[in-house]
Amino acid sequence: MKLNKFRKKSPWILHYNTGGCNGCDIEILASLAPKYDIERFGALNKGNPKQADILLVTGPVTKRCKDVLRRLYLQMPEPKVVVAMGACGHGGGVFRNFYHVENGVDNIIPVDVWIPGCAPRPEALIDGIVEAIEILQTKSKEKEYIRNHNEIIDKLGAKDD
């Protein structure tokens, strides 16, 4: 039995706001609510990287958030997909080149799907999730790495004593 066809049946979402204006988050909540109801595709908002398949990132990634984002990404088991949502995630949006932002999600972790708009409508979000599921099915269980993985990994982990 090929198990990877079940990936498209139950995409579990981890949502993380990296310092945006919360507009996108309201749209995400709208898509969970009765009108759009993404649970009919089996999607759940898990809030826990250990059990999630899709990392849904909104916001421009502030400097404070970037290590958190890396850790969340590294704690997700493969196969996994990153979806950047909203204009801020695509290079910073209105926050571009501010002193405190990293100008978009793909400067920190690899992004698979981009959902444009400020804020994107729930339809666009669902479209993006469906796109992400397609990518998820083609991915393998091999470990994925972030940019400058080896240099950063020591900084990220807590030291055991």
Binding site: P49, D67, V68, R71, L74, K143, G157, A158, D161
Partner: peptide, 15 residues
């Protein structure tokens, strides 16, 4: 299996 840090909202976990 691969080892992973415990989840603490992405922050470093307390010792």
């Amino acid at each position: 299996a691969d080892f992973v840090q415990p989840y603490n909202c992405g922050e470093n976990h307390p010792k």
